[in-house]
């Protein structure tokens, strides 16, 4: 495993820690899109089916279980925890996320490497992950007040995929790997969706101002 990959995974993990910190200690999920969180549960459930069919490493298995467990836990808190669920910005979380699922299903059925259940679901999970942040970004645009933890959470989530791109470049050059268009293009699209957010996040950080996205 190269450094970019490890940093990417750690950034992803850290984003979840930051979100759990907000939910468990501040007891708030204000500004967090439940729709995006539900999409992540679907992404992990469909991607990690190979937990049952293939073993890679203790690290790999442990991380998959952590991502599955925490994503389900976060959705549970936002839907059912009696204090946390009252802080949910329901009226602003309006993105039609079913549309993203449908789009990813159609795309996975049309473009995949092999037509079998696990491969198509794996491909579906990549397409869905690429766009899963959209409801969250739309919610942020509508939020008048983006708190630090929410801003940091989204930034770390975007940084994770950007680091994965460097990891793919490294593996292509150093480990002599072949082209893998589906994950690469999905990953590029996913990272590109954050471009606008990155710009305003870094700007607010440099000017020591509160993060605010233009509507």
């Amino acid at each position: 495993m190269n450094l970019f990959r490890l940093l990417g995974d750690m950034t992803h993990l850290l984003s979840i820690v930051v979100l759990l910190l907000k939910i468990r200690t501040v007891k708030s999920c204000a500004g967090i899109s439940l729709k995006t969180q539900e999409l992540y549960v679907i992404v992990f459930l469909t991607r990690y089916l190979d937990l049952f069919t293939k073993y890679y490493s203790v690290y790999n298995t442990a991380m998959k279980l952590v991502f599955l467990g925490t994503s389900i836990g976060i959705v549970w808190y936002m839907r059912y925890h009696k204090v946390v669920k009252q802080t949910y910005s329901k009226d602003e979380d309006t993105f039609k996320h079913y549309f993203l699922i449908l789009l990813s299903i159609i795309l996975a059925l049309l473009i995949h490497r092999a037509f079998d259940v696990i491969e198509v679901l794996w491909t579906f999970s990549l397409y869905l992950e690429a766009v899963a942040i959209l409801p969250q970004l739309v919610l942020l645009q509508k939020s008048r007040n983006i708190d630090t933890l929410t801003g940091d959470y989204v930034f770390l989530l975007g940084a994770y995929r950007a680091l994965y791109i460097l990891n793919w470049v490294y593996r292509f050059l150093m480990e002599n790997h072949k082209f893998r268009w589906i994950p690469w293009i999905s990953g590029l699209v996913q990272t590109a969706l954050y471009a606008d957010f990155f710009y305003y996040y870094i700007k607010s950080w440099k000017n020591r101002e509160k993060l605010k996205l233009p509507a």
Binding site: R5, H12, Y56, S57, N60, N176, K178, R180
Partner: peptide, 10 residues
């Protein structure tokens, strides 16, 4: 390299 290499990622 193994053909499934991308799948060793998360």
């Amino acid at each position: 390299p193994p053909s499934s290499y991308v799948k060793d990622e998360l």
